[in-house]
């Protein structure tokens, strides 16, 4: 991936090539900024490709705006350019939880509790993230107290309050822990749930933590052949 210039002549430094988009570092006014560009996917039918890229760009921008209004520390939205499917947002400098875990440096229990709390507040705002993986949580220095987690990449987030979607969000995080960081699962997941339970406000339309846990169990048995196969486990 090579560096490039944006339409204003700002130099964009290639930063990361993700599955969904290419990320560049640049400036926006006087701030350091992240340019998220959803480039064409040559494997897709061009119509499907245009449809997916545009709708995801609009959707992500809307979600970032709504969450910021609700006081959740998501990356601040600076600008959207639909012609190039680009979102310009705050650049967050931090190490991902995945990197830390892979180097054997397990973040403190408080970080996971705070993460659960943030996810709960995202859900309170009627939004689900859709891809809460350990690579999508960065750790940054807080203003007063130690490290705080900041959730990034709202590319798959959507507006939803349904029990299914909310539970799926937590299920995905659990699944990433068990598949990629199995050895730390028992340490991390209970802290996450603790923070989640504390931060969640249950309105009349919302579900309780018990409903969510029950639904997660159901989701887990929904994958192929997971029916309580006691003989194997």
């Amino acid at each position: 991936m090579e560096d490039m210039q944006d339409k204003r002549g700002v130099t964009l430094v290639a930063f990361k090539k993700g599955a969904e988009a290419r990320l560049f570092r640049g400036t926006w006014l006087e701030w350091e900024a992240l340019y998220k560009i959803r480039t064409r996917k040559p494997y897709r039918h061009h119509l499907l490709d245009a449809q997916i890229r545009t709708s995801r760009t609009v959707n992500e921008a809307r979600i970032l705006e709504k969450l910021a209004c609700n006081g959740i520390p998501v990356p601040t939205l600076y600008e959207v350019d639909l012609d190039s499917c680009t979102i310009i947002m705050e650049y967050i400098n931090g190490k991902s939880i995945k990197d830390s875990l892979e180097n054997g440096a397990v973040p403190s229990a408080r970080v996971f509790k705070e993460l659960g709390n943030q996810v709960a507040r995202i859900h309170n705002a009627g939004i689900v993230h859709g891809d809460i993986t350990t690579s999508n949580v960065l750790q940054v220095k807080g203003e007063s107290r130690g490290t705080i987690p900041r959730i990034i990449d709202f590319g798959l987030a959507m507006f939803s309050t349904s029990l299914e979607d909310v539970s799926m969000d937590i299920h995905l995080f659990k699944r990433v822990l068990t598949s990629t960081h199995a050895e730390y699962f028992a340490e991390i997941f209970p802290r996450f749930l603790e923070g989640y339970e504390e931060g969640r406000e249950y309105s009349s339309r919302g579900a309780s933590i018990d409903d969510i846990l029950k639904r997660i169990e159901r989701i887990e048995t929904r994958g192929r052949y997971v029916k309580k196969n006691k003989r194997m486990d």
């Binding site: 993700g18 599955a19 969904e20 996917k41 494997y43 897709r44 039918h45 499907l48 690579s135 990629t180």
Partner: peptide
Amino acid sequence: QETTFAMLAEVTERAVAHT
């Protein structure tokens, strides 16, 4: 084909990037 294969391709791409 285009829709379902694109879905598979997308998930494959993310899994490669992740792992």
